[in-house]
Each structure stands twice: as C-alpha cells, then as structure tokens.
Nucleic acid binder design. Structure first.
Lengths: 239, 239
DNA sequence: CGGCTACTTGAGTATTCTCAAATTGTGTGG
DNA sequence: CCACACAATTTGAGAATACTCAAGTAGCCG
C-alpha cells in the first residue's frame, strides 16, 4: 500500500492508434505524432504523482480508477475527484513547478504520460489540440463548480444520490451499465469527496436502500429507481 | 436591481497601455495589438453575463467587484467566487456555446471585454499569451479546489476566518490595506459562498469580534489579530 | 420621516458528527 | 484449508454544530 511513485520505472510503449482516437478529453491521433507517450501501470494505493514532485506531464487515464487528494499543510485533506478511462489528470498543476496535489490509484490502473513540454509544442503546431486542452481545463472548472454547488446546497442523502447518479452517467458514457456497477473507492474516500463522515455515508446508503432506490452490498451498487434518485438529488424529498 | 446585461451598450475605447501592463492574469501589452477591447461599466446588481447567453468573450475586471453564481435547474444556486481588479472572468465557459453561470456586479464596476475569437487568434500568434491563458485556467482550478478543501474540512468559524484572510491577501496584492477593508458583498452572498446561512455568518463574525480577532461594523472590517485568525483558520491562508 | 432591506440576536430543532461496538470481508501464515 | 489478524463497513446513542423560525435593530433611499 505504500507506493513508489510512478515516475521511476516505465517503458515507452506506443499504444494502438485506436486507443488515442477512442478515448479522452484530449484523445486525438495528432498527439501521437508529436508527443512520446509512456504507459504507467499502477497498483491500488500507488500514486501517479504527489504534491511537491516536479511537474513534467499530464496523464490520460486508460484503465482503472484514481483519486485526486487536495492537501493543506496543516494536515487537512480532501478527495476532490475520481478519474476514469478518458479523464485527463494533472491539469490543475499546469503553470507550476511542482504538482499541487496527490493522485493515487484506487485499483490496478494504467495512465498514459503526456510530457508537458512536447505537448505544448504540439499544441502550438496543432490549434485543434490547443483548443482541446483549453476546453478540457474549462470543463474541469465547470465540474468542480458543479460539485461545489452540490456540496453547498444538498443534504447528505442528496449528495450521495447525486454521487451515484454521476457515477452512473460516467459509466454509461464508457459503455458500462449505468444501473449496476462496483464502487472503486471505499466509504472513506467517498465521504471525503462528499464532505461527510464515512459513518454518515454508510447510514445514508442504508437509507437509500430502505427507500427502495438502490441496493447496495459492500461496494456493489444497483440503481433500482433512477427516477426516484433524480428526484431526491434534485431537491424534493421522496415520500 | 433587475439588470440589463452588459452586452448591448458599449463603446470601443482603447485603454492606456499601462493598465494592460499593470493588471491581470492575462494583462500583457501584446493583447492590445490583436484584440479589440471594449469597456463595460456596470452598476451594482447588473450582470456582466448570464447563464445561457451566447459565449463570446472573456472579461478582465478593472474596477469594482463581481460575483459568480452557479445555478442548478431546480433553482439551487451558490456563489462560487468573487472577482476583483485583475481577475479574469468567463474562463469557465470556454468551449461552450453559452455561458455556464451568472456574473453580477456587487457595486459600480468596470470590466474589459476580450472577444474570444480574436483572443484565440492572438494566442496562436503569441505563445506567451497562450501560456498565460492556460495558466490562468489552471490557477482557477486550484483556487476552486482549495475552497472545496476549506468548505469540506473547516467549521463555520474557520471558514469565515479563512474568507477574511483571503480577502486581506487579495487586497494586499492590489496595494490596499490588508488589515482594514470594506466587504463588497452582503452577508447573504458571503454565506452562499461559504456554504452557510447568513445568520450563521453574522453570528460567527460576532464571535470573531468577541474573540478579539477582528472588529466589524456592518461591512467595515478590521483584522485585529491576523496571526490569531491564521491559527483559527488552520494555519495557512487560502489563495 | 416612512418604508425597505440588511443585519443581528435569541430559542428551539435537526442534521450530522463523535465515540463506541459489533459485523463482515480479506489476506496471510500455519 | 482453516484460523487469525486486520481493514472496511455498519449500526447505535449521545453530543455538537449549524439551521429554522422569529423578533428586533440599524442603515439607506426616496
């Protein structure tokens, strides 16, 4: 569980073009022509990067699931995001000398390293790429703001419902079942992200089960009543 | 209070180069050579833009103070930021056809419109500009994440303290007194931003006064014991 | 000077947290 | 393969923080 960071051991390995076409906020073939891509394999618990390490690359998640942890120097920390296939990671650290947060794998995962200087050069040559990067950054801001809104205005029950619906939608977009999935994160990480305590998350999930909205066994989730969840997450209590 | 939006009436008016040099995440002279800059004057309550309006420009705040309001379609809303001289506004909407949120002036303010297509073109020609824009976006992500951390891990008292310290630091950077300043926003907006109720903010400010950390009269704030505030807020000021 | 809004303060309530214990699942060494 | 230790999760009871509802005060604009 104590992770060697991902930088040291990696082999350059050009991935099939189809991958580049298929996935990602940035995933277009042109990148491959300009940027050497390294594949990083991580076990659960290993970090892709840590706050303070020199910033050198962005990463594109290809397999698995990772979390971002925001850290304060007084020891406070919070999970501010979960990342799956196609997500671009590291954008928050652009413009800095060192990464601003930790990114840690929740399970066996694979991320592609996109060294930043070559990427910048590529963006300069290919305006399309530049636009995609900028859009990815703006999209990240919007995602963060939507969660700020959610955490600031929703009850514990509503937050958990919203979280499950968000996972469902992301799974759907990746071609997986939006109704039945496995949580990649523990209650603790989920709680941290939702600004709750893990006991509260646990209780809340139990309550959603009581209400007949979901069924939960450990990390396995079934969304039984998606419409009901939506109603709950959207403001009105379910009676 | 019901605001005509800022788009209709504006006169092109080249601002002194010194302004461009002096202010802003993006404030460099090269911008002026490529991008026509329009000045928007707003009264308190008027909006710079509203969610749903076609996205056409970013804005650089020159005078005054504005707030960003995130909106949900079920009516929930939250203030997600306050913007002062030098802040770049609108970046969250890059890549969209329409703005994603409301930006409203809290007092008489002035913002410079940077039409986006010309700005993109300028960025293409001047890599320095591009880098600045990208850095500004990344910086926005970091600011949002730091506040997510604060809202997720701090008590009401700590949040208010952190908020005051943040204002103090921003004022200092603009050359104003970090110890004595006027709040540009009402308790309601402050509460919304901090994910609290306005009564709680009010009580909390009273408590900080009791503790001898600040003195508050309506919107006038004096930071009496900055070190004490820092200790309370958890050690470090939020940027 | 009214009438309004913004702000403050009080009292009781509710949601979420804290502390604690029980339960279940997981991995490891015998 | 089982027994055990350990980590993750669930559940309970009481406490605390922040909320709701309500009333009162203070500035502000016409």
């Amino acid at each position: 569980m104590n992770a060697a960071t991902a930088f040291a051991p990696t082999v350059p390995m050009p991935a099939p073009a189809s991958f580049f076409e298929a996935i990602g906020d940035i995933g277009i073939a042109q990148m491959r022509e300009h940027v050497p891509v390294l594949r990083h394999k991580l076990e659960g618990g290993e970090s892709l990067y840590r706050a303070g390490q020199p910033f050198r690359a962005l990463f594109l998640v290809n397999v698995g699931c990772l979390k971002t942890c925001e850290l304060a120097d007084d020891g406070r920390e919070q999970v501010t995001g979960f990342h799956m296939r196609g997500d671009l990671v590291g954008v928050e650290s652009i413009g800095l000398a060192a990464y601003a947060c930790d990114v840690v794998a929740l399970e066996s995962s694979e991320a592609w390293e996109l060294p930043y200087p070559p990427m910048l050069a590529a963006c300069r040559r290919v305006p399309e790429l530049q636009a995609r990067l900028t859009s990815a950054l703006a999209g990240e801001i919007r995602r963060d703001r939507l969660w700020m809104l959610a955490l600031g205005t929703l009850s514990a029950e509503q937050r958990v419902a919203a979280f499950l619906l968000d996972l469902a939608e992301r799974h759907a977009r990746l071609g997986f079942s939006p109704r039945h999935f496995i949580l990649r994160m523990g209650r603790l990480d989920m709680a941290s992200f939702l600004a709750l305590k893990h006991e509260t998350v646990s209780r809340t999930l139990s309550r959603l089960v009581e209400l007949g909205l979901v069924s939960v066994q450990r990390r396995e989730v079934n969304l039984v009543d998606v419409a009901g969840l939506r109603r709950l997450a959207g403001g009105e209590p379910v009676h």
